[in-house]
């Protein structure tokens, strides 16, 4: 399997020897890479029982729990980075979760699917249907996504909430998008900090 580009970008953003919390860490692949390549101390939160076994197998500390209710237990600035990669659109209270992440973490890294890239816009405009793409294959009735947002929406959110965007990256599955990100990128990854 080729290395996931979003993992590569996230790993680039993180300084060595950091303490990292990954919310919705899945099988722990990203955390395990961070530990190996950057000697980070890592913890994951994940709801799926199966995924917890996979995390433990990789030697990744993992707590079963849902993201919405798991953050209040941690003290302020406990982590150097809190990662929310492809999970913020699936939580019940994204605003609270992002603000909490910036409380318990000195920095947060948020990866979002960009629901307003070119092909989605064309589908919406010409078909008159909610877009279904290779990267967002769900129908309205079976999507795990509760929130639909664009890179531009997320920038606006950060502006309104006084959150500093230290870095913004856009990507398509195999390469980075450096311009017109809200139109061309399938995903956006933001490095955030408290102002």
């Amino acid at each position: 399997m080729t290395e996931r580009l979003d993992y590569k970008i996230i790993i680039d953003m993180i300084k060595p020897h950091s303490h990292v919390l990954d919310l919705g860490c899945g099988d722990g692949a990203l955390l395990s890479k961070l530990r190996e390549t950057k000697d980070c101390k890592v913890t994951g939160i994940e709801i799926s029982e199966k995924a917890i076994y996979a995390c433990m197998e990789k030697g990744v500390t993992a707590v079963q729990g849902d993201i919405d209710s798991s953050l209040s237990d941690y003290s302020d600035n406990r982590f150097d980075y809190v990662i929310l990669n492809e999970s913020v659109q699936q939580v019940l209270h994204p605003e609270k979760v992002i603000l909490e992440s910036l409380r318990i973490g000195k920095k947060a890294i948020v990866g979002i699917p960009n629901f307003c890239h070119a092909s989605s816009r064309f589908q919406l405009f010409f078909n008159g249907q909610v877009p279904i793409t290779r990267w967002l294959p769900y129908k309205w009735y079976n999507t795990p996504n509760l929130r639909f947002l664009s890179i531009k929406d997320f920038r606006q959110f950060c502006f309104e909430k006084n959150i500093r965007i230290e870095e913004e990256r856009g990507l398509r599955p195999h390469y980075e998008v450096t311009f017109w990100r809200n139109f061309l990128a399938h995903n956006g990854i933001f490095l955030l900090s408290q102002t």
């Binding site: 917890i52 993992a62 707590v63």
Partner: peptide, 19 residues
């Protein structure tokens, strides 16, 4: 889970699973 919360608060490295 209460215990897990208390340990998390105290920066203890804890893994938890309900099988």
């Amino acid at each position: 889970k209460d215990l897990v919360r208390g340990l998390k608060f105290n920066n203890v490295d804890v893994s938890y699973l309900e099988i």
